[in-house]
Protein backbone atom coordinates (compact mmCIF):
# COMPACT_ATOMS: atom_id res chain seq x y z
CA UNK A 1 0.00 0.00 0.00
CA UNK A 2 1.32 3.43 -0.90
CA UNK A 3 1.17 6.56 1.22
CA UNK A 4 -1.62 8.27 -0.73
CA UNK A 5 -4.77 6.59 0.51
CA UNK A 6 -8.21 8.14 0.76
CA UNK A 7 -10.90 6.51 2.87
CA UNK A 8 -14.64 7.03 2.98
CA UNK A 9 -16.59 5.52 5.87
CA UNK A 10 -20.38 5.44 5.63
CA UNK A 11 -21.51 5.86 9.20
CA UNK A 12 -23.98 3.06 10.00
CA UNK A 13 -27.49 4.20 10.79
CA UNK A 14 -27.01 7.50 9.01
CA UNK A 15 -26.59 9.01 5.55
CA UNK A 16 -23.32 10.57 6.57
CA UNK A 17 -19.99 9.84 4.91
CA UNK A 18 -16.76 10.48 6.78
CA UNK A 19 -13.82 11.12 4.47
CA UNK A 20 -10.23 10.77 5.64
CA UNK A 21 -7.46 12.25 3.55
CA UNK A 22 -3.96 10.76 3.37
CA UNK A 23 -2.85 13.75 5.48
CA UNK A 24 -5.22 12.72 8.26
CA UNK A 25 -7.73 15.54 7.79
CA UNK A 26 -11.38 14.50 8.02
CA UNK A 27 -14.60 15.82 6.53
CA UNK A 28 -18.28 14.91 6.86
CA UNK A 29 -20.69 15.00 3.92
CA UNK A 30 -23.95 13.49 2.74
CA UNK A 31 -22.97 13.59 -0.91
CA UNK A 32 -20.10 11.49 -2.32
CA UNK A 33 -19.31 14.03 -5.04
CA UNK A 34 -18.94 16.77 -2.44
CA UNK A 35 -16.75 14.48 -0.37
CA UNK A 36 -14.46 13.47 -3.25
CA UNK A 37 -14.14 17.11 -4.24
CA UNK A 38 -12.99 17.93 -0.73
CA UNK A 39 -10.60 14.95 -0.51
CA UNK A 40 -8.97 15.66 -3.86
CA UNK A 41 -8.56 19.35 -3.08
CA UNK A 42 -5.79 18.43 -0.63
CA UNK A 43 -4.22 20.43 0.91
CA UNK A 44 -6.84 23.14 0.35
CA UNK A 45 -9.34 23.15 3.18
CA UNK A 46 -7.64 20.28 5.01
CA UNK A 47 -7.43 21.96 8.36
CA UNK A 48 -7.39 19.54 11.30
CA UNK A 49 -11.09 20.06 12.10
CA UNK A 50 -14.02 19.07 9.86
CA UNK A 51 -15.00 21.91 7.56
CA UNK A 52 -18.67 22.74 7.16
CA UNK A 53 -18.99 24.96 4.12
CA UNK A 54 -17.17 23.25 1.27
CA UNK A 55 -18.63 23.88 -2.19
CA UNK A 56 -20.36 21.03 -3.96
CA UNK A 57 -19.16 19.67 -7.29
CA UNK A 58 -21.62 19.99 -10.13
CA UNK A 59 -23.30 16.66 -10.69
CA UNK A 60 -21.33 15.00 -13.45
CA UNK A 61 -22.55 14.07 -16.89
CA UNK A 62 -22.19 10.47 -17.97
CA UNK A 63 -19.75 10.15 -20.84
Amino acid sequence: MSGVVYRVHWQPGSDTLLGTCHCGAEHLAEDPIELWTWLLAHPAGHEPFPAADEPSLEVGVVR
Binding site: W10, L17, P32, I33, L40, V59, G60, V61, V62, R63
Partner: peptide, 20 residues
Protein backbone atom coordinates in the same frame (compact mmCIF):
# COMPACT_ATOMS: atom_id res chain seq x y z
CA UNK B 1 -26.22 12.41 -25.34
CA UNK B 2 -24.98 14.96 -22.84
CA UNK B 3 -28.44 16.40 -22.23
CA UNK B 4 -28.68 14.58 -18.98
CA UNK B 5 -27.45 15.14 -15.46
CA UNK B 6 -27.09 12.02 -13.38
CA UNK B 7 -27.49 11.87 -9.64
CA UNK B 8 -25.06 10.11 -7.33
CA UNK B 9 -25.68 8.99 -3.75
CA UNK B 10 -23.66 7.19 -1.10
CA UNK B 11 -23.76 3.80 -2.86
CA UNK B 12 -21.85 5.39 -5.77
CA UNK B 13 -18.78 6.38 -3.74
CA UNK B 14 -16.61 3.58 -5.16
CA UNK B 15 -17.84 3.91 -8.73
CA UNK B 16 -17.04 7.63 -8.69
CA UNK B 17 -13.52 6.81 -7.51
CA UNK B 18 -13.06 4.23 -10.27
CA UNK B 19 -14.22 6.67 -12.94
CA UNK B 20 -11.71 9.21 -11.71
Amino acid sequence: GANYQELSINIDTGALAARR
